[in-house]
Design a protein around this nucleic acid. Sequence first.
DNA 1: GTCCTTGGCCTTC
DNA 2: ATCGGACACATTCGG
DNA 3: CCGAATGTGTCCGATGAAGGCCAAGGAC
Length: 536
Amino acid sequence: MRRFAALYAALDASTSTLDKRAALRDYFREAPPADAAWALWFLSGGKLARIARTGELRAWIAEASGLPEWLIEDSYHHVGDLAETLMLLLDDPAPEAEVDLPLHVWIEDRLRPVAGREEPLRKAVVMAAWAGLREPERLVFNKLLTGALRVGVSTRAVQQALTEHSGVDIALLAQRMIGDWAPTPDFLAGLLSGEATEADRERPYPFFLASGIEAAPAPPGAGAFADLAEWLVEWKWDGIRLQLIRRGGTAALWSRGEERLDGRFPEIEAAAMALPDGCVLDGELLAWNAAEDRPLPFTALQKRIQRRRPGPKLLADCPVRVLAYDLLEEGGEDLRARPLYERRARLRKLLATYPDPLLALSPEVAPRDWAHAAALRAEARRRCVEGLMLKRRDSPYRHGRARGDWWKWKVDPLTADAVLIYAQPGHGRRSTLHTDYTFGLWDGDALVPVAKAYSGLDDAEILRLDRWIRANTLERFGPVRAVRPVHVFELGFEAVNLSGRHKSGIAVRFPRILRWRHDKPAAEADRLDTLRALAR
DNA sequence: GTCCTTGGCCTTC
DNA sequence: ATCGGACACATTCGG
DNA sequence: CCGAATGTGTCCGATGAAGGCCAAGGAC
């Protein structure tokens, strides 16, 4: 545990990714495999099955520290992180009372056996740990209790460090970490193995993700986009990204979040079984309006995304299909290094050989020129798509969000001018500032909340607004402050949906602040009716 | 003891 | 999804 | 020509809305 706590401290102390990578490399070089496997699990976002609810932890710390609950609550609000608060409220044990066990022993022998058991058992283990751990280890222990580590390293950074440590290609590491795996020495050995393993054949390929186009450096038609003929243009579908794996006599669907979707979309799995064995398709799952031959809005799909076993009514009400746009494997051969035009030609041929409306080719849009492309992009909302995709015809299928070859060119957002009506403090390192805002629109002479948004202001604006909020609070409801309705902000969003959850009856998709409208008085902010008219 | 509501968690975008 | 901030690395500028 | 300043690419955390799942707890 000491070594892992030291790694955590090193990662926490630096913001430099080079330093972090060096600390990770050192850790993986020195730590025993049983510990290293668990470290990898936590650093890549893994969690333990819940040992205690946060309410229980607060009660236990009150007992262990002898402090009243209100003081603990208050401390938490100042610190902004429960694990850290719990650490700070206790003293270090005397040296002779200290307990030092390896990370995997803490987890496998102490915590896991009591997960889900009666409260006194769990409490005893946690209290004993608190009594036996010094400060840095106590913090890490608490982090394991309350959730993920969140220490400024992404899974990708950890994989990069492992690549440097082991020499195994990062894309292969990423592939091996997709889906479920057990944090054991065996898994770690397989992960760092130079040779292809049997398990490699069960997992999807790491997804290639597109970046948003920024008009300033490279508007379509200029720079890298000068020659339209080099680019394949497709619709940017509003569904969920999917890899369809047809291997070993079965068909499996994997989401972008690297989850298996078994049973969720049985009609697609059935259709996929018609494909020849040994192929992998990349595409988009869409809810489809067959009568009008176009996608249903994303809200229709939402009813199915998490539904493990959809019933006949849902299957009928929300029919889905896959529009495939890439072929990553055919006849058991990995095609990712081949150019897109070749992969796509093979995909077209494959889908033509086994025709099924549930498994179709995402069509090429084929604009005449960039002006035509821009005009088609402007029609996106009417067509129920999010915009256009631009893909370089000779590009390989890369790993992660590599820039340059795949771009999403989304339709311009909708906008509204709304009034700031509530504010509350953020979390983590923003816990000392009011960074969480609720905006309202006029409905008669009242302001009705329509969206929460935090992103879009820079630090200077956040600081300025925080000072103003503190001085202009009308009423407080716990951490939430109602403020004088004075400031107007232009909000951007992708769509307006009808919603039963909000008083306004509508909800906006992807709300963000575009600018602070110092020039506009609150009375001139937009009206709720205007937004309602855009809802669908 | 069973049923229903509620809230936290988790995934999608 | 979104966005701003921060670091890493590449390129350009100033002496 | 070299070190400093500036620009660009990438990563990262903190945050939005919806809907399903699941466990806790109250009502009966």
